[in-house]
Design a protein around this nucleic acid. Sequence first.
RNA 1: GGGCCGCUAGCUCAAUUGGCAGAGCAGCUGACUCUUAAUCAGCGGGUUGUAGGUUCGAGUCCUACGCGGCUCACCA
Length: 544
Amino acid sequence: MTGRVSGRPGAAVNDGEDQGSMVGEPRAAMDLSELQQIRLAKATALREVGYDPYPTRARRSHRVDEALARFAQIEPGLPEGGEDAEAVTLVGRLVSRRHQGKTLFAHLRDGSGELQLYVRRDDIGVDEFDRLLKLYDLGDFVQAEGHLFRTRMGEVSLRVGGMTMLAKALNAPPEKWHGLQDTETRYRQRYADLIANAEPRRVFATRTVVIRTIRRFLDDRGYLEVETPTLQPLYGGAAARPFTTFHNALGQTFYLRIADELYLKRLIVGGFERVYEITKDFRNEGIDRNHSPEFTMLEFYEAYADYLTMMETVEALVVQVTREALGSARFTFQGHEIDVSPPWPRRTLREAIRDASGVDYVAHPDQACLLAAARAAGADVSEGTVWPRIVDELLKQFVRPNLIQPTFLVDYPVELSPLAKRKPDDPTHVERFQPYLGGGEIGNAFTELNDPLDQLARFVEQQRDRDAGDQEAMPIDEDYVNALMYGMPPTGGVGIGIDRLVMLLTDQPSIRDVILFPAMRALPTARPTGEEVAAANRGGSGAE
RNA sequence: GGGCCGCUAGCUCAAUUGGCAGAGCAGCUGACUCUUAAUCAGCGGGUUGUAGGUUCGAGUCCUACGCGGCUCACCA
């Protein structure tokens, strides 16, 4: 860590090696803003009258929600405006302040909520009241002890008998009414966003409920949560370009995983019957509203199941997650009322495309023919587009935007799905489905291909596309084929993009709004130099 | 990568045709013992993203660059 003491990241004010200097030493103050200097002076003033602005320990008897619950219990036995006889001690951040002569109202926020503080000079003495007015600021963490009561205006409050500083804030919080609006600052300094805005606090709390509920759902059904490699010598399981990195001691290139699919299925080969993993995948491609270079993926695999079984599981999972997170199976996304109650309609990809565009891709089995038909239907497809891509374009341009209510599209052309098993009655299609919701897909699933030689043939096919310049085609994974040669039972598998699911449930239009610290271009001063990169690759970072 | 838009005080935003860079919040000083966007009086606060250019004069016009947003392309 370098010591940066400025509101703007990248505006380093303290690049020296010495780390242990006491806060409050004015050495770094040269580059502090006027407002920061004023707060720093207050911290120094506190110290001068014997109060540590950063004491080591805090004490708390109740969280805010516990205090409110306690008062609700006790209030019926109190006279009008009476106080709880027992003292409580609360901790948290000062988020608002209203001074009126010899009294002071303020709001304290902890992780569970907010509660009003009521301070009277007569209660705490002239000196302490004065300190409170002069040396405490919005954003400071404090500890307040006192008795609960209800104000004349009807708000449960703490009549403060004593207050101490827990941590002096040098940065002022953002504007209290408009919050922090600047998108870039909200992403780069998420801490400030969380302080200032209730919306991200709600979104990320919901995200946690979603993930917790998924775990419980799968745990309850006998799934084993496992961990597979992030650093992979060979990537696979999806169509995407990987990030590349290098292991110094092994002298070897690794790829950051683009999916965990192939490892999870190796575990099915090994004899685990139900496995899942919730983890980050990394794809080296463009960033937009729906794509982040690192994102969170759920994948789960079940032996002796097929894609029909998995559709029921997905419906049950999504409705349970929605109910846990929102208290209902219905919610609003970007103005659309969505109901995820099962069962969800199932339509084959072929008929969905045919109904929406008039093009039956089965009737146009070669590239030139399908391209002409697609264009005749009004699709925007460029000249060299390969056959499976044209199908994908038809899906994207005609079908997807209209899939607002939950829908399964099923049975995809084999060319689009190198890891899925062919339909028994139609070897040109595979048993695959994608759940659509709110105009986008939230996952991908199939009956897993377990014929090792068919799998090898599909890899070879992919390799041909690779050689033809398709940078997203999968490389041949011989070890995976070897695993399949030990025998993999019939298996159903599902992948669900957690970020997109959270976007839907929290009504957020951008994936960046559901990722706490979304990937951003480094600011000029924060970007490592070529020398630093070279040194890192030379070996040994020195630090853990 | 292309196109469009944006970047002004700590935060939220103004600034007419190119003519003294402003307000609210926050801050500072003071008044006020049930306020809650508290109120009232006064005060301070700016390298207008960066670097050039045009001009008597640039927040405003031009060029380049940086960062971001939207969008297209790419991409599940």
